[in-house]
Design a protein around this nucleic acid. Structure first.
Lengths: 363, 363
DNA sequence: CTGAAAGCGCTTACAG
DNA sequence: CTGAAAGCGCTTACAG
């Protein structure tokens, strides 16, 4: 247990057993190349001396770690606050299980994903939620380490996994507009600091494009009096708080379209506390379709995305890349709008209301 | 990206920059020891050639990985099915964040936790949910790698973190008995195959002891006609299914005491589907107090345990052990019985019923 | 400020 | 069946 205790090496075992270091190595890695008696003797001496091969030394020799790295955009506790990641990890975990590999969670080092890359001993990276976008990709390329991009802006020469974000948001916003909603609040998770410089990117850009697609058919646009865009941290608490902001900015709002179930559930909490009926007075939608989404009251209308499959496909692509396949597959997984009880037509007293006879948004 | 591409080494950078390998190493690890111009030149050449130090080689030289290992009792997808682990990981993640370390998830290799140990390049292990109990501990000792035991049977010379499992179960079962329940089903997660040989161990043993403590005061005991013990996998589906078994074995049951919220929530699902009123006809309790426990209808009466704190304390202990502190601290964290709506007095038509005037089990 | 040399602990063709 | 030797790619006293 103590850090001062010197570790036993193969050299010592070899000496004690009267064989070469080679033989010791074979005893652990390729027993068939040793006679029964030699092998048994080596193993016995190893146990006595408390020897077992050093994993790091073995990695260096074999040029292989048997670990998959997941490069995270935030510290582990922050990332796991969103149940999204739990599902995503399960998908990757299936691949680890099949391949007999471990999974290394690699959070930013001193706040930077980029800095974390050179320190992780893994056979390849799955990159989720890029910070600098091209910065990390350049570093990964430079190091010639296999990687796959998830929910990013795919480059042609890199394996990637995405979902149909644009189509999904187009569908959900269109649905609201068809029901008659004209005063919408789009509640988004924060894009991170760099989008001020470079504009939106990745899934967020695609989702906002999808929303814009739908709005444009009704001659509406973002950041107008009718359609507000709110950006907050992706937590339930932030979703709760955001409702106050929305009401003070858009008192006539009739629908809150959230870009994450976590935010939507927080908003639902706030609306309940304020005694506002959902969907009678206000409609709410989510994104992800996490298990919690069907537990809320009313149950949440939301966009279902195949989170676990995303992790599994990313893992599969990474394994292929590690094995030297030079394919750069790009997969776009499908989403679905799940209709539940949190959406209805706008309330009657709302200004600028187009009356729509019946709701299709309830179960 | 391709596995065939040879990686650039410090040797090549040194040659191209006209310096020694030492200088290259200094440029990355101890820049102050180089003149400005040399350092800049080396870094420039590195970028041009696409060099950055190999993490595995660095680990071997420094005898340090900057990774914490979490030894898991099952494959990653199985483990993460229980939201328990998400919270536990967050606790460990806090420590990783503070220390600038990564977190390696180490599932069993070929079904064995023991086999996984020698292959993981980590500075130390947190061990959660032991399989062989003493087997893994012996191996960890043998390798002289720092480790801390969580929810195990603590040995005196090993850092460990536990909760007051025995007291918690004594309290919850006592509560049921005081309410008048005499027909109880204890719904437990499976202990794993080895308990057939060695008997129960760890938290399960302590919890069952606690239950026995309470039962004995009423002259009741396990596996009698009055008190059944059911063991199923720790999943919601298994909790759902178990209800059928319980009813066919104990038709007079008035309370189901679950050893996990996941099981309790599954049981609640089953009872709702069967039209059985909780707590009117049947009482249900959980264990863990996961966020979901307050979302069910009725909300779940359960044992709260500080899961995140458990992970954090385990991480702290491990860091201390890695830094060579020879302390073997043992911490027992406290639990609390959280009273919600899923518990009431037994139904009146139940046989062998002792009438108890009022419920204290509702919110 | 810079470099030669030893060391980290293993694996694996290759030769016998 | 067994071993001597080279190699994996870095770091770090030590000497200058």
């Amino acid at each position: 247990m103590t850090a001062t205790a010197r570790k036993v090496t193969a050299r010592e075992v070899a000496d004690a057993a009267g064989v070469s270091r080679t033989a010791v190595s074979f005893a652990f890695n390729d027993p068939s190349r040793l006679s029964e008696s030699t092998r048994v003797r080596i193993l016995r001496v190893s146990t006595e001396l408390g020897y077992s091969p050093d994993p790091v030394a073995r990695m260096l020799s074999q040029r292989r770690t048997n670990a998959l790295g997941l490069l995270l955009p935030q510290a582990i506790p922050d990332v796991l606050e969103n149940p999204y990641y739990s599902l995503f990890l399960r998908g990757i975990g299936q691949v680890c299980h099949r391949e007999g590999m471990t999974l290394m969670l690699v959070p930013p080092l001193r706040g930077s994903m980029l800095s974390a890359i050179p320190y992780a001993a893994v056979d390849g990276f799955i990159v989720s939620g890029l910070q600098l976008d091209r910065g990390e990709v350049a570093e990964l390329r430079r190091r010639q380490v296999p990687f796959v991009l998830v929910d990013s802006d795919a480059a042609d020469d890199v394996p990637s996994v995405e979902i149909t974000d644009r189509e999904a948001m187009r569908e959900v916003v269109s649905h609201m507009l068809e029901l008659g909603h004209r005063q919408l609040a789009i509640l988004s998770f924060e894009a991170g600091p760099e989008h001020f410089e470079h504009g939106y990117s990745g899934p967020l850009r695609r989702r906002l494009q999808g929303a814009a697609d739908a709005l444009s058919r009704y001659d509406l646009q973002f950041r107008s009096r009718s359609v507000g865009l709110y950006e907050v941290p992706c937590t339930r608490a932030a979703g709760y708080q955001a409702v106050g902001d929305i009401f003070s900015t858009q008192p006539d709002v009739t629908a809150i379209v959230c870009l994450s179930d976590v935010l939507a559930i927080g908003a639902l909490d706030a609306l309940r506390d304020r005694g506002i009926d959902v969907p009678g007075q206000l409609s709410v939608t989510g994104y992800d379709d996490q298990p919690e989404a069907s537990w809320t009251r009313p149950a949440l209308t939301t966009v279902r995305q195949p989170i676990e499959a995303k992790g599994r496909v990313a893992g599969d692509f990474l394994i292929a890349a590690i094995q030297g396949e030079d394919q750069h597959p790009q997969q776009v997984l499908h989403t679905a709008l799940i209709m539940r009880g949190s959406v209805g037509p706008p309330r009657q007293d709302a200004p600028s209301l187009t009356v729509v006879p019946a709701s299709t948004g309830k179960e």
